[in-house]
Amino acid sequence: MQNEAKHKAGFVSIIGKPNVGKSTLMNALVGEKLSIATPKAQTTRHRVTGILNGDDYQIIYQDTPGILEPKYELHKRMMHYVQQALEDADILLIVVEPHEQWEESALVDYLTHTAQPIIVAINKADTSEQAKLAQAVEYWESRLPNAKAVIPVSALYHFNLDTLLSALLSYLPEHPPYFDKEQISDQSERFFAAEIIREKIFLLYREEIPYSCDVQIFSFKEKEHIIHIQADIIVERESQRKILIGKGGSALKQVGVAARKELEAFLGKKVYLELHVKVIKNWRRQERWLERLGYKKP
C-alpha cells in the first residue's frame, strides 16, 4: 500500500516597507482581494490574513503594516503587528522594490540570524530593466545571505507568482490544515467592511485626511436578500469632518457609492450602507479609542 501524501500547512508573514505592494501581492497569491491596496503609503494598519488552499497544502498569508518609525500610539501598535508576524511565521516573505536597499537595523539583524526560512520577492519587476533586476537579485543575495530564494515578481501582472508559490511550498512544514478548506480568511465580514470603506477614503481624499481617519462598524445586520451596515468614520478635527462630508454631503456620498459597490461584490448580497462622520480628537494617540477600533495593546 502506498503512503498517503503528506499535507503541508503554515503561516507566511509578508514583511516590507510602506508602498512596496505587499497587499497587492498577497491578494494576487490568494486570488481574492482581502487586503486593501492604494497608491498611498501606510494603507495597511492591521495584520490581514489570506488563506490559500490546495489539495495537499494550506498557506496562511499574513499581510502586515509597512515598516516605519513610530510617531504616535497607532504606529506603535501597527509595528507590534509586524513583530508578532515575524515571531509567528513558518516562512518570512520579504517584499522589496527593484531599487530598494536596506541600512543596518534591528530588523536586518533579526533576519540575518533567524532560523526561519526567508524568501525575498522583488516586486514591481515590470518597472525595471533586466540588468537592474539582476543587480537587485545580487544585492539581496548578499544582504540576506541566509535567504532561501530571491525572486523578481510583479504582483500587478502576476509575473513569476508560480515560481514564488513553488518556493514557498518547498519550505512549508508538514501539518494538518489550520482552517476549514473553504475559508479564505480568519477575519470577520465586519472587519472587511470597515477596511473597504477605509480604502475608498484613501482613494478619494488627499493629504492628511486618509491618515486621520478610521472606520468603526456599529451595526451589521444580515437579512435574506440584503445586508444593512451602519458605520462611523472617525476623524480628529472638525475641519476634517467638513472636508470628508463635502458640500451638501457630496464627497461622503462618493465614498458610500464606491464602498457599497465593492461590499456587494465581496459579500454577494445587496448592501444598504449608512455612513456618519464623528470627530474624536487625537484618536490615534488615545489608547481607549485604539482599543475600540481593534488595535490591540502590545
Rank of each mutant, 00 (worst) to 15 (best):
Q58Y: 07
L275E: 00
I60R: 07
H75D: 15
Q240K: 05
L133D: 03
Q83R: 14
V235W: 10
A89G: 04
A115F: 01
D88V: 08
Y139C: 02
E262Y: 07
D88E: 14
S154Y: 02
A155Q: 00
A258P: 11
I227R: 10
W283V: 02
R260M: 15
L133S: 02
D88W: 05
A5N: 12
N53M: 04
K71L: 11
H75G: 12
K261T: 15
A251P: 11
P39Q: 07
Q84G: 13
K270H: 09
I91D: 01
V95G: 01
I151V: 10
L263G: 07
K242A: 12
V255K: 13
I209M: 07
D88F: 04
A193C: 10
S142C: 11
G66K: 02
S128P: 06
G54I: 08
V257M: 13
R198H: 08
S212W: 02
E236A: 09
V48P: 06
A89E: 04
Q58D: 13
A121R: 11
I151G: 08
N19R: 07
M26Q: 01
Q230A: 15
E138H: 03
A258Y: 11
T44I: 10
K71N: 14
I217M: 07
I119P: 01
L25C: 13
V255E: 14
A259I: 14
